[in-house]
């Protein structure tokens, strides 16, 4: 049940055209992305109009996964946009939080300027699931070049390259893996694809 918050200046852009079946398709792509790290899962959400600067595919993931039980952290460009905040609040009801550590989800629209990964919640020894899942925008997402990935969900090894990224991102992600089973999980979203990078994936920085 979502009601329009008081003081909404204009009606937010519409959400998923078919909330039940679209949400299932989006979730399935996210599930496959995390179950098979590095693979590119196609996700067509051309009928979704998300307010600038929230990329459409990220918006789709947010609408499918967030609700009032999931505090969400927005990176600066998103947090500054009244349209984005209203849109997310209207369609998901998720409380927007300022502290990275309080977030169940984080939406990162400009990964090259994102705050350090270590600020997000990595869960606890007894409840490693109480961690942040990051949804990060990617202009390009390919399996060519990029660090070598191995671990659960990967038959042998694979490569994943997302751009743009903060300079230290892969080192931070590699440090995140050493915390396993604690750690954050990442979903990259390009214009029509998503890829997953769960905490269980081992990252070899020596490019193959």
């Amino acid at each position: 049940m979502t009601t329009a918050p008081l003081g909404l200046t204009k009606a937010p852009a519409p959400g998923l055209a078919n909330p039940v079946h679209d949400a299932q398709c989006i979730f399935k792509a996210a599930m496959n992305a995390l179950a098979r790290p590095g693979t590119l899962q196609t996700l067509h959400v051309t009928n979704l109009t998300a307010p600038h600067p929230l990329p459409r595919t990220m918006a789709a993931l947010a609408l499918a996964l967030l609700d009032y039980d999931t505090p969400v952290y927005l990176d600066t460009p998103l947090a500054k946009s009244r349209d984005v905040v209203d849109y997310l609040r209207f369609h998901t009801g998720a409380p927007v939080v300022d502290m990275q550590a309080d977030a169940a989800f984080a939406l990162i629209s400009t990964p090259e300027k994102m705050p350090p990964l270590s600020g997000f919640n990595v869960g606890t020894d007894e409840y490693p699931d109480r961690s942040t899942t990051l949804i990060m925008a990617a202009e390009t997402l390919t399996n060519e070049a990029g660090p070598l990935l191995s671990g659960p969900g990967i038959k042998t090894t694979t490569q994943l390259n997302a751009a743009p990224l903060a300079p230290g991102f892969w080192h931070q992600m590699s440090a995140n893996q050493t915390l396993y089973p604690l750690g954050v999980d990442v979903l990259f979203a390009s214009v029509d694809q998503i890829a997953g990078l769960p905490r269980s994936t081992t990252i070899s920085l020596k490019e193959a």
Partner: peptide
């Protein structure tokens, strides 16, 4: 609803599934 469960419940279960996949073998409440 489609598949009986309401959408809020499905989202809650789906989030648990994503965590479960990220930490193989760990039991997500």
């Amino acid at each position: 609803n489609f598949a009986y469960l309401d959408e809020q419940t499905k989202r809650m279960i789906r989030r648990a599934i994503l965590k479960a996949i990220a930490v193989p073998g760990y039991q997500v409440p």
